[in-house]
């Protein structure tokens, strides 16, 4: 694909992206194709950028945390936000490995 050609999106690509994003494919495919192409149009100026050299900034030392274990809260507090839980575990439908 030549860099300068505007990118075309089709329904298959939308479906694949939905799969990667864990979204259901939309009913109105055409509208979404048009919307995403509209967004890609906004990105098209990036085609003219050449990234010969990466620019690195001067960096401060990384701030790190000391290795001390601190209890945060009881399991119940975490589970109270969960839609479904049982015996102290979060529950979901059977997951295939």
């Amino acid at each position: 694909m030549k860099e300068k050609e505007p990118l075309k999106i089709d329904k298959d690509m939308i479906e694949e992206l939905c799969e990667f994003s864990m979204l259901m494919p939309p009913e109105a495919d055409d509208e979404l194709v048009r919307d995403i192409e509209g967004l890609l149009n906004i990105l098209s100026p990036l085609d003219s950028v050449s990234t010969a050299e990466a620019i690195t900034e001067c960096e401060e030392d990384t701030v790190m945390r000391e290795d001390i274990a601190l209890p945060y809260c009881e399991a119940e507090s975490f589970l109270s936000s969960a839609p479904e839980h049982t015996d102290g575990y979060i529950r979901v439908p059977r997951t295939v490995e």
Partner: peptide
């Protein structure tokens, strides 16, 4: 299935603009 849970929850939960940006970002 777990896949169904992911997809349905997110599709019902998110609005259109959010979905557009997620798809673009992906």
């Amino acid at each position: 299935s777990i896949d169904e849970l992911y997809k349905k929850s997110r599709s019902i939960g998110f609005g259109d603009e959010v979905k557009r940006r997620i798809l673009l970002g992906t």
